[in-house]
């Protein structure tokens, strides 16, 4: 545990001691803020337009649907770009800088190193997400939000983040070039996003499998307020799976003859 904390602390210092954390948080909050603002204005326009309409029509207008859902959905897309930039350095930089040799010759297991790195990136992710959720806090001062879907959406985003980060870490462990690590994880995430597009042309079994593999498909349920255990299990097992593969990648180079 002490070793995990030592790695965690080192990664945190590295994120916040350099512009990385601030730039990435800034980029993320700017993009999501831009979309959020537009959706709020959109909702405002719709409200003005419908103010003299029948009650029936008015009651269908829903701030959750117009603002909250699109806010969460757009986030997924921004995270796909931001997370590779947060994870790319985790292993690639250590390998390039020779510090990987320090870690591997210290009395600390590669599992502990991996956990420390994962947790550091995840905590940074959660911190940025908390700032973004602040937008909804501001909105709640002016509109009546249904908090249920907000919580389930936030839960979905938190679970999805773990899976995204573990994909990014796997990419970083495969190379010592940070650019390649970022590009690789970006493409892996895109692939996991669009994989269900192929489902339309697949037969029954493949259809289910491809639908199931799509990361975004699972978040969508939660953004709409449906918390299903199979979505939670999916994200957790995806996170564990990619971390497991990363661990094997790291260990395998020590046992190659």
């Amino acid at each position: 545990m002490g070793n995990i904390l030592a790695i965690f602390g080192k990664e945190m210092r590295s994120y916040f001691g350099s512009p990385v954390a601030y730039v990435m948080a800034g980029v993320f909050l700017l993009f999501t803020g831009f979309v959020f603002r537009n959706q709020v204005l959109e909702f405002h326009d719709m409200s003005v337009f419908l103010q003299f309409a029948e009650y029936e029509q008015k009651s269908r207008l829903n701030v959750n649907e117009v603002v909250v859902e699109s806010f969460f959905e757009f986030q997924t897309f921004v995270w796909m770009i931001v997370i590779p930039m947060l994870t790319m350095r985790l292993y690639a930089e250590e390998k390039r800088g020779g510090t990987y040799e320090l870690l591997m010759t210290s009395p600390i297991t590669s599992g502990q190193i991996l956990m420390g790195k994962f947790l550091a990136c995840y905590v940074l992710y959660v911190l940025i997400e908390v700032f973004a959720l602040g937008y909804l806090g501001i909105l709640s001062m002016y509109a009546r939000i249904d908090w249920g879907p907000v919580f389930s959406g936030a839960l979905g985003v938190l679970l999805q983040g773990g899976a995204f980060i573990s994909v990014g870490i796997l990419a970083s462990s495969l190379t010592e070039n940070q650019i390649i690590a970022a590009v690789l994880s970006f493409f892996m995430l895109i692939l996991l996003w669009i994989i269900d597009w192929a489902a339309r042309f697949a037969d029954d079994v493949l259809f289910v499998v491809l639908k199931f593999l799509s990361l975004v498909e699972h978040t969508r349920d939660m953004i709409e307020g449906v918390v299903d255990t199979h979505d939670i299990v999916f994200f957790m097992s995806a996170t564990v799976f990619f971390l497991f593969v990363t661990h094997h990648v790291l260990e395998s180079r020590r046992w190659r003859a």
Partner: peptide
């Protein structure tokens, strides 16, 4: 094996801990 963005004492503290 040095982290260029760390201070000398912080670095040694990190190494000592691992």
């Amino acid at each position: 094996p040095l982290y260029r963005d760390m201070h000398v004492q912080t670095y040694l503290d990190f190494v000592a801990s691992i």
